[in-house]
Every structure is written in structure tokens, then in C-alpha cells.
Design a protein around this nucleic acid. Structure first.
Lengths: 396, 396
DNA sequence: TTCACTTAGTTAAATCTATTAACTAAAGAA
DNA sequence: TTCTTTAGTTAATAGATTTAACTAAGTGAA
């Protein structure tokens, strides 16, 4: 299995219908305000087909009609938008330092968000806490009357590609947790699709799916927090999330960027995570796990040691960006994760290193645009919600 | 564009037909001897659909019937195989040190192969030489009466993802060459699909498509020759070849594995290619471009300098393997390229390094099987032929 | 031998999807 | 007003898979 939502390889007429419906919905998502004629041109479907599918999607509350789009000397088309009024997508992020949940519209607009800074303990206790938060949010008058399309949950570790099982979360101490099964008894009433994914994959998915401006061809999202990971999303109407045979795609924290370097908790030396990760920076600066990293570093002010550690971490991040660029060659690179709160002393060296080491392979091509998400508190949760929508769109 | 042959995102009944036909053909390719009933079970299509499509494929010379497959207490099914008798696939590999061509059956069996050790000069001269070789092979009595499905050509450098243009081949001195257009006037009579791809991508494709034994879920092929590159193939019925926005997916030669290391011709320091590549080994040992690398190294015998350089190159290769494993997480890792001719002094350290640095992320999962292709002279050309078949299968 | 049972594969009718072609609708320009 | 252009709808058509019933070909037990 390569993808979360890849179309199957063979199918019947019903499959074809789902394919086309999802494609039409994806066109409106990527090009808000598209008319039926625009959709027909982009998807290569006929006006008749598009008209019929759009009619069904309007009736089911997935699309809404907007203003007339003037055309040069012809009947104006009717703009179409994702209908933000009738459905809700739920996303939850189980982070090393707390839980975050969001409720989104089909267009990716966050209706509500909640955040608690209690580090997760056991899966059961976490599920109970998360369920309470979600039930409370679900009952909020702003969304209680919306139809819930499902819930996406992210975790800080690799998820098996075939089953929703968290394989290993070193920073939580969790191993082989089928978290959705743990959570379900606490939320029996919540219907729709239930999904589990790695935090970086979900964040990448969300940035790709709920893009602003021109739809990206592909995205690599680098999540620099307690550990460091990445997610890759490509594809046109169907976002593809390569996961690999063991769900380890993007586990760049343990790529070796400095042979013979520092020892990593994984047992190897010179892993990227020994240079650029929350735990590595804490270790280098002697900051306890119980302290808030951002506050502790701010408290030290313009300390040369701090500056050196952050610069070194930034340059390692730049190295990772270069290596990812040469290995995955994404159209867009997005930086996120809690380390971005540490600011320019980390980010600037990363961007500078990346810029300074561009090479001939890229001659004559556009530089890859880099987006820095300075506060990505809810990015993964929103990405999980995006995954719910992509899943539900096939059944719309 | 993510893939060479990905199904489009929307379509009509004819598209559905192509999808199912390709899926059925893919099932027979991956499971030779499958019966109609087996195919129906695997593809989720009905017996009626499978029966009809198989009938058409038998008539067109894509499939042939074999022996009866006994079933436990029921009518035996009829084994189906790819028909090796009626079609031919052509593949060509433009290498830094010579040209190689092959003619293959649908099953990947090489009918003929040719090799010349003239390093390519200009695109025009290379096209003329290649056309002469291909025409000569096409006229061979063994294949002259077969229907040609097309020609795949590989080049030692990144190819633009949307158009068949070689962007840059540093080792050939070629820049922005639309090689198929250069070649076409020399071979006007050759019909079928014409494809151009990077050598590592094509080799990976061939190893994935013409697999032996159990079909792999995904493959990363590392091509270690004059330079070093890699190709990735995943997917079920449709092999997917991620290329990236500029066709640079797998350009691992310029990932940085030793910050501050040796200078690379790309301008950066510590690129993988400064350690494990034909040119780096030549530079380290003072072997001229005009000499044959394998012969020169053999001539030096058990020289400690040679041993050290090869061990260092092998360990760098092992690092690359680890990093690719953590970034792309393929189900199978294949090592090929001309450096494999240098033997165990290079290969053994690579495998040992990879083995010694497995970490916790892989706990409880199967080790990645590693296949070493000791002589990959025709691997890329055969892979190009495989790509021709995949393309033609959609139109079969 | 016969019969029941199982699995493989084919056939014709039915179902469902998208397309085609003709239509209506709505705007601008002469 | 009329012509032209573009948007969107509708009814008939074409085409693909499925359904359901069939035939075919084996095993095993009475």
C-alpha cells in the first residue's frame, strides 16, 4: 500500500463514479470558484457528467453555488465552492507535550481548537482525556448540528502502513498501540471515518490539501520537535502519502549526517536527531525535560553556547533539507514543529545553509519555495482532519 | 506528475476498461500461471469480466493458455501466462562508457543483447550509432517477425518529469537534450511507444516489473557507477515511479553524508559521490579516465591503499543504504552499477555497515532483503524495455 | 456406476455510467 | 434586434461490468 487514498487498481462502474466524484470535488478544493465548465476542462469529463455530479454534491451539502463568473462574451458560469456549512471534520494530535484537537470545515477553516499541556501517560488515560475533549467540542453549539465526517488522530511515531497501529513512539514510551481501538469505547457515538497517522505525514497532508494560493504539486513537511521527522505528499486529485513497507518513510531523524558523530538513543552515531531535535538541544544545553524548552532558552538570553547549539542545529536542519531535496525533490518544502518557536537563531542558519549549498543539478530550475510555519501547534491536528475529508470525499 | 504510468484521476468507460485490462495483465505478470478464477479473486472483478478481457488478450497475443491447474475437488482452472512469442520490447542504455541494447519478451526474457564500448560523444553521433545497432537487432531473424511495442532509452542523468528531456548528464557533457527527438529521424520505421528515462529509474523499474519469485511491494535500486544514483518503484498493478518536480528523485549522489568532507564537482563538500563513485575511486587511487577501472584495480592486487579506498567507499554506500531505508523505506534494496564489478572489497563493507547500524525503528520487523546484481550491464536497458511494456499494456 | 458436491468458466439479460447531440440560458457585440 | 459565444441541461445512445443461470470438469462417497 503506497497511499492513504489511492484509487484501487481495478473496479466497476461504481468505482468509476467515486473516482470522478472525488476528482470533481478535488478540483473545486484546489480551484475555489471554479465553474462546471472549468471543472469539465480540467478533468476532461464532459459537461453532462460534471453537471450531474455537481447537482448531487450540491444536494448533499458538499458544494455550494456562489456568484456568476463573467466570461468574455458568453453566458457567465456559476462559481462553485466547498460548502462550509453542513459538515465538520475532527482532528486530534497526541504530542509529546500535550493534546490538541480541532474542528474544521470542508475548506480547512478551523471552527474550534483546544489544547491541553498534559504529557500523555498511558494510551488508556490519553484516550479518556482525548475523548472528553472531543465530546465537549462536538457538543459546542457552533458545530453540534453539523454532520461529522470522522476523526483523524496523529501520533509521534511510525504507523503501520496496512493497519492503524502505532509501532513505536520513543518519546511516549508506547509500542504497538492500536490507538483507535483504545479510543473507540470512549467515543461510541462518534461516527464517520476514523484514521490514525504519523504526525508529520498528517501535517504534510494538511499543508498540501488545505493549501493557500496555487495548489502545490508536492510537499515535504519537516517536523522538528522533540524528535525530527518528515512527511511527503504528492498527487493531483488523490493526494498520495508514501509510507513504505514498515511505515518508516520520512523517518529522517535517524539518517546519518555525521558519521562518527554523537551517540543517538537509537544506538547509532551521527543521526540527524543528535543535532536537530528538542532532546538533543536539551542535552547540549543541560535543560531538563520538565522545563519548557522555549522559555529556558529565552531565559539564557544571548548566551554564546546557546547561539552555537542553535546554529549547529540549524545547519543540520539545512543539511536535512538538502538531502531531502535530492532524494524526494518536492515542489515545496515546509518547516514546522515546536523547534520553530526557538526563532531565527535556528531558522536562519538552516535557510542560509540550504541556500548556500544549491548545486548544478538545479541549474536553470526554480528554487524550491520554503515555507516556515512559526507556530504549528494545530498543524498536525488540522492535517488529520484533512485526511478525514479526503477519505469521506470518495463516499460523498 | 508522480508516475510514469499512473492512472489518471477521472475517466470514462474506456478508461475503466484500460484500467481493468492492465490490472488483469499485471496479475498474470506477477503471478504466472494464474487462472481466470485466481485473477478474479485478486482483482475483485467478476468471473465474467475477467473471462471477457482474457479472451481478448489471448486473441491479441498478450496471453497464452498453459496447463490445467488441479483444484481440490472441482474443475481445474487453465493456467495463463504472458505470451512470449508475438511481441518484442526494445531497450537501450546510453552509459558513460558505452551503449547497450536489448530485445525482450513480455515476460522479461532477453532475446538479444548488444554492447559497444565507445563512450558517447555528441547526441547526434550517439543517436546514429544507437540507431544502427537497433536496426541491426530489429532485423535479426529471431525477432524480425514480432510486433514491436516500442523503445525505451536510458541516460545517466535526471530527466524532466513532464517531457522526455535529459536535463544534465555531467559525465557525458550533455545538457537539455531531447534525445528521442534526436534519435527519431534515424529510426523512422520503429513504431510503438518511445520513452526516455534516467538509468537508475529504469533499472529499478525493470527489477520491480520483471521480478523473480514473489512480487516485491517496492524497490529501491542503487546504481553505483561513474556517479551514484537511485530509483524507486512502488505500486501494485501500476508501478509508480516518483520523479519529483524536477526529476531529481533519487539523486542521492549529492546528498551530504560527511559535512566538511571532500569537494565534489557539484561545488559542495561531503557529497556521497565524493566517496562512492567511479570518479571518486579513480581520483583517490590516481587511475586515469582512459583506463578500465576494474582492470586497474585488479592489477594493483592486494594493495592496502586500494583496500582502504574500497572499504571507505563501501561504508559510504552502507550509509546511503541506511539513509535511503529511513527516508524511502522500500521493501527491497537492490545494488547495481559498474562498481559492483569491484567485488567484495567494496560490497562486503557496505552490507556489514548496513547490518551493523540497524536500529530500534525496525524492531520486530523483517530485515530488508538486499539483492546485489554483480553484473548489471544490461539491467537498465532491460528496465527501459519493461517501461515500454507497462506503457503498452494500457493500450493492449 | 451413480450421485452429490465443488470449482472453473461462459453466456444473455440487466444495470449503471458517461457520452453524444440537441437543446435552453445568458451574456456581449455589431 | 440579431449574431456569436460560452454555460449548463436533457434525452437518447453506447459501452462496461454485473447478475444469474448455465455448462464443464474434476473429486469422493454410496
Amino acid at each position: 500500500m503506497v497511499s492513504t487514498f489511492a484509487p484501487q487498481a481495478a473496479g466497476d462502474l461504481n468505482f468509476l463514479k467515486k473516482l470522478n466524484r472525488s476528482s470533481i470535488l478535488g478540483t473545486v478544493r484546489r480551484y475555489p470558484g471554479a465553474t462546471r465548465a472549468d471543472i469539465a476542462a480540467r478533468t476532461q469529463l464532459t459537461k453532462a457528467t460534471v453537471g450531474g455530479v455537481v447537482q448531487a454534491l450540491l444536494e448533499r451539502g458538499w458544494l455550494r453555488e456562489g456568484e456568476l463568473q463573467p466570461r468574455g462574451g458568453g453566458r457567465p458560469g456559476r462559481a462553485l465552492y466547498l460548502d462550509d456549512a453542513h459538515h465538520v471534520l475532527l482532528g486530534a494530535d497526541i504530542g509529546v507535550r500535550g493534546l490538541r484537537i480541532v474542528a474544521c470545515t470542508l475548506g480547512g477553516e478551523v471552527l474550534l481548537q483546544r489544547y491541553v499541556t498534559e504529557p500523555p501517560t498511558t494510551p488508556e488515560a490519553t484516550a479518556a482525556r482525548l475523548a472528553a475533549m472531543l465530546r465537549d467540542m462536538r457538543d459546542d453549539p457552533g458545530i453540534a448540528d453539523r454532520h461529522c465526517l470522522g476523526l483523524g488522530v496523529t501520533v509521534p511515531g511510525p504507523v503501520a502502513p496496512e493497519q492503524p497501529i502505532l509501532r513505536l513512539a520513543p518519546n511516549l514510551g508506547w509500542v504497538d498501540v492500536a490507538f483507535l481501538e483504545v479510543l473507540r469505547p470512549y467515543l461510541p457515538e462518534l461516527d464517520g471515518a476514523w484514521l490514525l497517522d504519523n504526525e508529520a505525514n498528517a501535517a504534510a497532508f494538511g499543508e498540501f490539501y488545505f493549501h493557500d494560493g496555487i495548489p502545490p504539486e508536492s510537499i515535504v513537511y519537516i517536523s522538528a520537535g522533540s524528535g525530527i521527522g518528515s512527511g511527503l505528499v504528492t498527487g493531483d486529485n488523490y493526494p498520495l502519502v508514501p509510507r513504505g513497507v514498515q511505515g518508516l518513510v520520512g523517518e529522517i531523524g535517524h539518517t546519518i549526517v555525521q558519521p562518527g558523530g554523537l551517540y543517538c538513543h537509537c544506538g547509532n552515531r551521527g543521526c540527524a536527531e543528535t543535532l536537530v531535535s528538542g532532546w538533543a538541544i536539551r542535552a547540549a544545553l543541560g535543560i531538563a525535560d520538565t522545563e519548557n524548552l522555549e522559555a529556558a532558552i529565552a531565559a539564557r538570553g544571548d548566551d554564546p553556547d546557546v547561539n552555537a547549539v542553535l546554529r549547529r542545529a540549524g545547519e543540520a536542519l539545512g543539511t536535512l533539507m538538502l538531502n531531502l531535496h535530492h532524494t524526494l525533490n518536492p515542489a515545496t518544502l515546509v518547516l514546522g514543529g515546536s523547534l520553530m518557536h526557538l526563532g531565527e537563531r535556528l531558522i536562519e542558519p538552516a535557510l542560509a545553509y540550504f541556500e548556500a549549498h544549491q548545486n548544478d543539478l538545479l541549474r536553470g530550475t526554480q528554487r524550491v519555495p520554503i515555507k516556515v510555519i512559526h507556530d504549528s501547534t494545530f498543524t498536525a491536528a488540522r492535517g488529520a482532519a484533512a485526511q478525514v475529508m479526503a477519505k469521506a470525499a470518495l463516499e460523498a
